[in-house]
Amino acid sequence: MSREKSLLEQIQSGDQRVIEEVYILYKKDFVAYASRFSVNDEDVVDIYQDSIIVLYENIISGKLVSLTSSLKTYLFAIGKYKIYNSLKIKATTKERFSDYEFLFKEDNEEDFLLKEENIEKVQKGYQGLGTRCQEVLKMFYYENLSIEEIKNRLNYTSKDVVKSQKSRCIKQLKEIVLKLR
């Protein structure tokens, strides 16, 4: 449990290599676990990778702050949900999937009909940004870090520096996207 706690903390601090460690750690057990369901091997690996991504996102976004169960149990619950999804089996109501139904739907997007092609253009724009900009925007939009946290993570002198850096990057991104539109 203490090892899992340290893994969790390392991922929270933005260390992506640790998620690879977690990936290797539970891969074998997950494949064995998934063999109870009639999923083919290729899909199992795919599902496992997606489950790891969900786990990662929940950790960095702060949805998973502390573990009530083990990291493995949590990961396998995500995996099970995804297996059921892929098999189009409705989970029985007894199964408490509500704990893990995250990220598949964003609650504040409901009022907006985001166009897939616009998102793709922004994605291309993001790819075209320098690493410093990508880093700041990733921390803000993906990892959901506060300006204060970004300041600490990147060793900036003040929150204002972070803010101006961020708005410069967004401006740059906007310009690239406008050219694409």
């Binding site: 964003e106 997007e109 998102i119 922004v122 994605q123 790819q127 993906y142 967004i170 991104l173």
Partner: peptide
């Protein structure tokens, strides 16, 4: 809407 697109795009990319 643009900021939501950014979030979605970065999420997709990452």
């Amino acid at each position: 809407s643009f900021h939501l697109e950014i979030r979605k795009a970065i999420e997709k990319e990452e």
